[in-house]
Design a protein around this nucleic acid. Sequence first.
DNA 1: GAACGTTGTCGTCACAATGACGATAAAGCC
DNA 2: GGCTTTATCGTCATTGTGACGACAACGTTC
Lengths: 231, 231
Amino acid sequence: MTRSVVSVTVDLVLLTIRQGALQALLVRRGIPPFQGRWALPGGFVLPDEDLAEAAARELREETGVDPTAGHFEQLATYGAPGRDPRGRVVTVAYLALLPDLPSPVAGSDAAGADWRPVDDIEPGELAFDHDRILGDGIERARAKLEYTPLATAFCPAEFTVADLRTVYETVWRTRLDPRNFHRKVTGADGFVEPTGGTVIRDRGRPAQLFRRGPATLLHPPLLRQSSPPGS
Amino acid sequence: MTRSVVSVTVDLVLLTIRQGALQALLVRRGIPPFQGRWALPGGFVLPDEDLAEAAARELREETGVDPTAGHFEQLATYGAPGRDPRGRVVTVAYLALLPDLPSPVAGSDAAGADWRPVDDIEPGELAFDHDRILGDGIERARAKLEYTPLATAFCPAEFTVADLRTVYETVWRTRLDPRNFHRKVTGADGFVEPTGGTVIRDRGRPAQLFRRGPATLLHPPLLRQSSPPGS
DNA sequence: GAACGTTGTCGTCACAATGACGATAAAGCC
DNA sequence: GGCTTTATCGTCATTGTGACGACAACGTTC
């Protein structure tokens, strides 16, 4: 049996919503290969570390973020033979959806780290196969908003229905009717719970505050491409 | 940087429907560790092999099945430090949904291979963490039947609506109303296409034959737990 | 070969979910 | 006090859905 000996890394697709755009955290690589190029944050898995543990550690190291703040899940694993010039490196990608953090991407050991609007990232700009990994992560996030309450992971602990709608509109790059959206969100079992408080954002009538509800699956779901009824 | 050097394997969750039950292909391990115990088929990734390639090769070796016959996708990756007594082994699990194959699980190099109804597999019966991997695969299959036309992967090239209904009923362990199911399947865009032919299965009126349609996403979806309308 | 059971397919009905959109509420600004 | 802006509630027509009736088309049985 020819068993291949490889290195294993974790890479992170960290998504948040800042300044009205879906943004991903990228780091500028300080060492070869791909020195100076933008890449997903990540690193090698330590000898006695579980994969999720390694991903959570990298998340803390690169962003100072508590992994429990948003949502965190395994995305997929990439292991094409030529994907890393250093040799055979298999990477397990994790996807995190985070609220817009005041934390200044502290404590990074990379040359630089920055949030970048995903629409501004050119194809081929990222190191390794990180283009594809990022794309898969975004696609996963888009799909999961339909059937799960994960949009709340982009929001702080308390948020308004309009905040949540902005999440959907930004991630899906769509416009949603505020009235229908309000009905669906408040009607889906366990999606959101009112806290009792209200806030005034900029202008207009004060909005109720909500927190995440206990649901793990949305029922009914908020479907993206509904067939137009009158056609 | 402490980079961990590990071995990488692929493991396969192969699901099919035989004798009215959801069954998984298991092999009896011929060598330690876990010698004599049932396990998922799998093996080490070769030095110059992509992960999906390795999984497809194992599928051919263990079952003689063409991977294009059904559906094939990456499931998840498992890499807890203690999961393999031989050392650090990270495994990338793949999920395949296959039609009931006449192929007699040929050419297996394991001590034995057999289809086993998933409900008959005792917790803790499988080697390594294969219990959990199998469970994750089944859960993925259940969920994907709702939103994708993947149920057709369990069927041969031509099938009846009743065949397809049996797939749903078996995987979901539910009963579905034949009339409503017929309406939804034939009404969902691109789910199935009539071939023009008909068959008589055992008794009763002949049924139309269908093949898979071009859709990759079901619209509208076939939801599992619909809230009862009259309650 | 007519009656019967069995399975496939079409229809109907009431209710739920949805998109379009009107109406009102409650704040700040002039 | 008007005006603008945003939040929230309602209405209406259409579609999707579960429960179930009706009929079609086969094999089997008497």
